[in-house]
Write a protein that binds this DNA or RNA. Structure first.
Length: 269
DNA sequence: ATGGTCGACTCTCGA
Protein backbone atom coordinates (compact mmCIF):
# COMPACT_ATOMS: atom_id res chain seq x y z
CA UNK A 1 0.00 0.00 0.00
CA UNK A 2 1.37 3.39 -0.98
CA UNK A 3 2.09 5.92 1.70
CA UNK A 4 -0.44 8.36 0.35
CA UNK A 5 -3.22 5.87 0.94
CA UNK A 6 -1.75 4.39 4.10
CA UNK A 7 -1.69 7.75 5.82
CA UNK A 8 -5.02 9.07 4.67
CA UNK A 9 -7.20 10.40 7.44
CA UNK A 10 -10.31 10.19 5.25
CA UNK A 11 -11.73 6.79 4.33
CA UNK A 12 -11.14 5.46 0.83
CA UNK A 13 -14.44 5.35 -1.07
CA UNK A 14 -14.99 3.23 -4.17
CA UNK A 15 -18.20 3.05 -6.21
CA UNK A 16 -19.41 0.98 -9.16
CA UNK A 17 -22.11 1.83 -11.70
CA UNK A 18 -23.32 0.08 -14.84
CA UNK A 19 -24.22 3.21 -16.79
CA UNK A 20 -25.78 1.61 -19.87
CA UNK A 21 -24.09 4.26 -22.08
CA UNK A 22 -21.77 6.75 -20.41
CA UNK A 23 -22.78 9.46 -22.86
CA UNK A 24 -26.48 9.01 -22.08
CA UNK A 25 -25.82 8.84 -18.32
CA UNK A 26 -23.14 11.52 -18.08
CA UNK A 27 -25.41 13.91 -16.13
CA UNK A 28 -26.01 11.18 -13.52
CA UNK A 29 -22.29 10.49 -13.23
CA UNK A 30 -21.30 14.15 -12.92
CA UNK A 31 -24.00 14.90 -10.36
CA UNK A 32 -23.10 11.87 -8.30
CA UNK A 33 -19.32 12.39 -8.21
CA UNK A 34 -19.72 16.07 -7.38
CA UNK A 35 -22.06 15.21 -4.52
CA UNK A 36 -20.30 12.13 -3.13
CA UNK A 37 -16.66 12.68 -4.15
CA UNK A 38 -15.66 8.98 -4.37
CA UNK A 39 -11.95 8.29 -4.65
CA UNK A 40 -12.75 5.82 -7.42
CA UNK A 41 -15.81 5.26 -9.61
CA UNK A 42 -15.83 2.20 -11.86
CA UNK A 43 -18.20 2.22 -14.84
CA UNK A 44 -19.49 -0.62 -17.02
CA UNK A 45 -21.41 -0.73 -20.30
CA UNK A 46 -19.97 2.60 -21.36
CA UNK A 47 -20.83 1.67 -24.99
CA UNK A 48 -18.31 4.02 -26.53
CA UNK A 49 -14.94 3.85 -28.24
CA UNK A 50 -12.09 5.44 -26.31
CA UNK A 51 -11.68 8.41 -28.66
CA UNK A 52 -15.33 9.40 -28.11
CA UNK A 53 -15.36 8.96 -24.31
CA UNK A 54 -16.56 12.14 -22.51
CA UNK A 55 -13.25 12.62 -20.70
CA UNK A 56 -13.23 16.41 -20.58
CA UNK A 57 -16.30 17.06 -18.39
CA UNK A 58 -15.09 14.38 -15.95
CA UNK A 59 -11.62 15.91 -15.79
CA UNK A 60 -13.25 19.28 -15.18
CA UNK A 61 -15.00 17.68 -12.19
CA UNK A 62 -11.59 16.71 -10.81
CA UNK A 63 -11.23 13.10 -12.01
CA UNK A 64 -8.57 11.21 -13.87
CA UNK A 65 -10.12 8.89 -16.45
CA UNK A 66 -9.01 5.64 -18.07
CA UNK A 67 -11.16 3.43 -20.26
CA UNK A 68 -11.34 0.42 -22.56
CA UNK A 69 -14.36 0.54 -24.82
CA UNK A 70 -15.97 -0.61 -28.03
CA UNK A 71 -18.63 0.96 -30.21
CA UNK A 72 -22.19 0.29 -29.07
CA UNK A 73 -21.72 -2.44 -26.43
CA UNK A 74 -19.54 -3.45 -23.43
CA UNK A 75 -16.91 -0.94 -22.29
CA UNK A 76 -15.36 -0.30 -18.86
CA UNK A 77 -13.81 2.82 -17.37
CA UNK A 78 -12.26 3.99 -14.09
CA UNK A 79 -12.53 7.51 -12.71
CA UNK A 80 -10.23 8.48 -9.89
CA UNK A 81 -9.27 11.51 -7.81
CA UNK A 82 -5.65 10.35 -7.95
CA UNK A 83 -3.63 9.39 -11.03
CA UNK A 84 -4.51 5.96 -12.40
CA UNK A 85 -2.08 3.46 -13.90
CA UNK A 86 -3.59 0.96 -16.32
CA UNK A 87 -2.02 -2.45 -15.73
CA UNK A 88 -3.99 -4.42 -18.31
CA UNK A 89 -7.24 -4.54 -20.29
CA UNK A 90 -8.78 -7.94 -21.00
CA UNK A 91 -7.39 -11.24 -19.72
CA UNK A 92 -4.42 -11.37 -22.09
CA UNK A 93 -4.36 -15.10 -21.38
CA UNK A 94 -3.69 -16.17 -24.95
CA UNK A 95 -7.23 -17.45 -25.41
CA UNK A 96 -9.42 -16.35 -28.27
CA UNK A 97 -11.60 -14.38 -27.95
CA UNK A 98 -10.28 -11.96 -25.38
CA UNK A 99 -12.42 -8.89 -24.68
CA UNK A 100 -10.52 -5.80 -23.52
CA UNK A 101 -13.86 -4.04 -23.14
CA UNK A 102 -14.91 -6.31 -20.22
CA UNK A 103 -11.96 -5.94 -17.84
CA UNK A 104 -9.71 -3.09 -16.82
CA UNK A 105 -7.06 -3.64 -14.15
CA UNK A 106 -5.59 -0.46 -12.69
CA UNK A 107 -3.41 0.70 -9.82
CA UNK A 108 -4.48 3.62 -7.68
CA UNK A 109 -1.66 4.61 -5.33
CA UNK A 110 -0.42 1.00 -5.61
CA UNK A 111 -3.83 -0.48 -4.77
CA UNK A 112 -4.95 -2.96 -7.47
CA UNK A 113 -8.53 -2.34 -8.66
CA UNK A 114 -10.11 -4.66 -11.23
CA UNK A 115 -13.29 -3.43 -12.88
CA UNK A 116 -15.28 -6.01 -14.84
CA UNK A 117 -18.41 -6.41 -16.91
CA UNK A 118 -19.25 -10.12 -16.93
CA UNK A 119 -21.04 -11.69 -19.92
CA UNK A 120 -24.81 -11.93 -19.48
CA UNK A 121 -25.20 -15.34 -21.13
CA UNK A 122 -28.54 -14.95 -22.95
CA UNK A 123 -30.00 -18.41 -22.22
CA UNK A 124 -28.92 -21.66 -20.58
CA UNK A 125 -28.72 -23.49 -23.92
CA UNK A 126 -26.79 -20.73 -25.68
CA UNK A 127 -23.06 -20.78 -26.50
CA UNK A 128 -23.05 -17.36 -24.83
CA UNK A 129 -23.84 -19.06 -21.52
CA UNK A 130 -21.03 -21.57 -21.95
CA UNK A 131 -18.80 -18.59 -22.69
CA UNK A 132 -19.99 -16.90 -19.48
CA UNK A 133 -19.16 -19.96 -17.35
CA UNK A 134 -15.72 -20.20 -18.93
CA UNK A 135 -15.21 -16.43 -18.50
CA UNK A 136 -15.48 -16.89 -14.72
CA UNK A 137 -12.83 -19.65 -14.82
CA UNK A 138 -10.57 -17.32 -16.77
CA UNK A 139 -11.23 -14.58 -14.21
CA UNK A 140 -10.10 -16.84 -11.37
CA UNK A 141 -6.96 -17.74 -13.33
CA UNK A 142 -6.42 -14.03 -13.89
CA UNK A 143 -6.46 -13.41 -10.12
CA UNK A 144 -4.05 -16.28 -9.51
CA UNK A 145 -1.68 -14.98 -12.16
CA UNK A 146 -1.69 -11.28 -11.36
CA UNK A 147 -2.76 -10.74 -7.71
CA UNK A 148 -1.95 -12.00 -4.21
CA UNK A 149 -4.86 -12.92 -1.94
CA UNK A 150 -2.84 -11.84 1.11
CA UNK A 151 -2.40 -8.31 -0.28
CA UNK A 152 -5.07 -5.58 -0.56
CA UNK A 153 -6.99 -5.65 -3.84
CA UNK A 154 -10.45 -4.66 -5.02
CA UNK A 155 -12.75 -6.21 -7.59
CA UNK A 156 -15.94 -4.51 -8.67
CA UNK A 157 -18.44 -4.30 -11.47
CA UNK A 158 -21.48 -5.91 -13.01
CA UNK A 159 -20.89 -9.62 -12.42
CA UNK A 160 -24.28 -10.59 -13.93
CA UNK A 161 -24.81 -13.11 -11.12
CA UNK A 162 -27.16 -12.98 -8.14
CA UNK A 163 -24.92 -14.86 -5.72
CA UNK A 164 -27.65 -16.16 -3.38
CA UNK A 165 -31.46 -16.53 -3.24
CA UNK A 166 -31.77 -13.31 -1.24
CA UNK A 167 -30.22 -11.48 -4.20
CA UNK A 168 -33.18 -12.01 -6.55
CA UNK A 169 -36.95 -11.58 -6.29
CA UNK A 170 -38.79 -14.90 -6.55
CA UNK A 171 -35.63 -17.06 -6.69
CA UNK A 172 -37.76 -20.17 -7.24
CA UNK A 173 -38.89 -18.74 -10.58
CA UNK A 174 -35.35 -18.11 -11.81
CA UNK A 175 -33.63 -21.46 -11.31
CA UNK A 176 -32.96 -21.69 -15.06
CA UNK A 177 -31.99 -18.05 -15.49
CA UNK A 178 -28.46 -17.38 -16.76
CA UNK A 179 -27.85 -15.05 -13.81
CA UNK A 180 -29.11 -17.40 -11.09
CA UNK A 181 -28.81 -21.02 -12.28
CA UNK A 182 -26.99 -23.17 -9.71
CA UNK A 183 -24.20 -23.72 -12.23
CA UNK A 184 -23.50 -20.01 -12.75
CA UNK A 185 -23.66 -19.29 -9.03
CA UNK A 186 -21.15 -22.10 -8.55
CA UNK A 187 -18.89 -20.55 -11.21
CA UNK A 188 -19.15 -17.19 -9.45
CA UNK A 189 -18.42 -18.61 -5.99
CA UNK A 190 -15.54 -20.78 -7.22
CA UNK A 191 -13.99 -17.70 -8.79
CA UNK A 192 -14.40 -15.53 -5.69
CA UNK A 193 -13.17 -18.35 -3.43
CA UNK A 194 -9.73 -17.43 -4.77
CA UNK A 195 -9.85 -14.68 -2.14
CA UNK A 196 -12.50 -12.01 -2.79
CA UNK A 197 -15.12 -11.13 -0.16
CA UNK A 198 -18.42 -9.42 -1.08
CA UNK A 199 -18.29 -6.38 1.20
CA UNK A 200 -21.96 -5.43 0.78
CA UNK A 201 -23.02 -8.87 2.05
CA UNK A 202 -20.35 -8.69 4.75
CA UNK A 203 -21.83 -5.42 6.04
CA UNK A 204 -25.47 -6.49 5.61
CA UNK A 205 -25.75 -10.28 6.02
CA UNK A 206 -29.57 -10.42 5.78
CA UNK A 207 -30.56 -7.31 3.85
CA UNK A 208 -32.30 -7.72 0.51
CA UNK A 209 -31.23 -4.85 -1.72
CA UNK A 210 -31.26 -5.05 -5.49
CA UNK A 211 -29.07 -3.08 -7.91
CA UNK A 212 -30.76 -3.92 -11.22
CA UNK A 213 -34.34 -3.85 -12.48
CA UNK A 214 -35.09 -5.13 -15.99
CA UNK A 215 -36.51 -2.47 -18.31
CA UNK A 216 -38.56 -5.19 -20.00
CA UNK A 217 -40.26 -6.32 -16.80
CA UNK A 218 -43.41 -4.21 -16.38
CA UNK A 219 -43.53 -2.46 -12.99
CA UNK A 220 -40.17 -4.01 -12.06
CA UNK A 221 -39.13 -0.96 -10.03
CA UNK A 222 -42.52 -0.30 -8.48
CA UNK A 223 -42.89 -3.93 -7.44
CA UNK A 224 -39.18 -4.20 -6.59
CA UNK A 225 -38.66 -7.14 -8.91
CA UNK A 226 -34.91 -6.76 -9.08
CA UNK A 227 -31.55 -8.47 -8.88
CA UNK A 228 -28.27 -7.79 -7.08
CA UNK A 229 -25.70 -7.99 -9.88
CA UNK A 230 -23.36 -5.11 -9.04
CA UNK A 231 -20.73 -6.02 -6.51
CA UNK A 232 -17.70 -4.72 -4.65
CA UNK A 233 -15.32 -7.38 -3.39
CA UNK A 234 -12.06 -7.09 -1.49
CA UNK A 235 -9.30 -9.42 -0.46
CA UNK A 236 -9.67 -10.38 3.23
CA UNK A 237 -7.18 -7.90 4.70
CA UNK A 238 -8.99 -5.06 2.94
CA UNK A 239 -12.51 -6.46 3.52
CA UNK A 240 -11.69 -6.33 7.24
CA UNK A 241 -11.17 -2.60 6.82
CA UNK A 242 -14.54 -1.97 5.15
CA UNK A 243 -16.59 0.34 7.34
CA UNK A 244 -19.64 0.97 5.12
CA UNK A 245 -21.20 -0.50 1.99
CA UNK A 246 -24.39 0.90 0.51
CA UNK A 247 -26.60 0.99 -2.56
CA UNK A 248 -27.55 4.45 -3.80
CA UNK A 249 -30.86 4.57 -5.64
CA UNK A 250 -30.37 8.09 -6.95
CA UNK A 251 -29.67 7.03 -10.58
CA UNK A 252 -33.06 5.29 -10.55
CA UNK A 253 -34.83 8.51 -9.60
CA UNK A 254 -33.21 10.79 -12.16
CA UNK A 255 -34.66 11.47 -15.61
CA UNK A 256 -33.85 8.62 -18.05
CA UNK A 257 -32.99 6.25 -15.19
CA UNK A 258 -30.44 3.53 -15.77
CA UNK A 259 -31.49 -0.09 -15.29
CA UNK A 260 -28.65 -0.44 -12.75
CA UNK A 261 -27.81 1.71 -9.79
CA UNK A 262 -24.71 2.66 -7.81
CA UNK A 263 -23.02 0.55 -5.14
CA UNK A 264 -20.31 2.09 -2.99
CA UNK A 265 -18.05 1.07 -0.13
CA UNK A 266 -15.72 2.88 2.29
CA UNK A 267 -12.48 1.43 3.63
CA UNK A 268 -10.23 2.73 6.38
CA UNK A 269 -6.78 2.14 4.96
C1' DA B 1 -43.17 -16.33 -23.26
C1' DT B 2 -36.39 -13.95 -24.73
C1' DG B 3 -42.39 -11.28 -24.37
C1' DG B 4 -41.81 -6.43 -22.30
C1' DT B 5 -38.03 -1.51 -22.92
C1' DC B 6 -33.91 0.98 -23.57
C1' DG B 7 -29.54 2.37 -26.02
C1' DA B 8 -26.62 2.39 -30.04
C1' DC B 9 -26.67 1.61 -34.59
C1' DT B 10 -28.33 -0.06 -38.80
C1' DC B 11 -32.51 -1.40 -40.62
C1' DT B 12 -30.98 -5.38 -35.67
C1' DC B 13 -28.33 -6.58 -31.69
C1' DG B 14 -27.25 -6.79 -26.81
C1' DA B 15 -29.20 -6.77 -22.24
Amino acid sequence: MGDRLAHRSQPFKLATFNVNSVRKRLPHVLTWVKQHRPDVLCLQETKVEDHAFPTQPLMAAGYHVVMSGTKGYNGVAVLGRHPITVVRTGFEDGEDPDEPSRLIHVLIDDLPVINVYAPQGFSIDSPKYAYKLHWFRRLRRYFARHLSADQPALLCGDLNVAPAPIDVHHPERHLKHVCFHEEVRQAYHTTMAWGFVDVYRLQHPRRQQFTFWDYRQPYAVQANRGWRFDHILATPSLANRCRRAEVDLEPRLAPSPSDHTIVWAEFHL
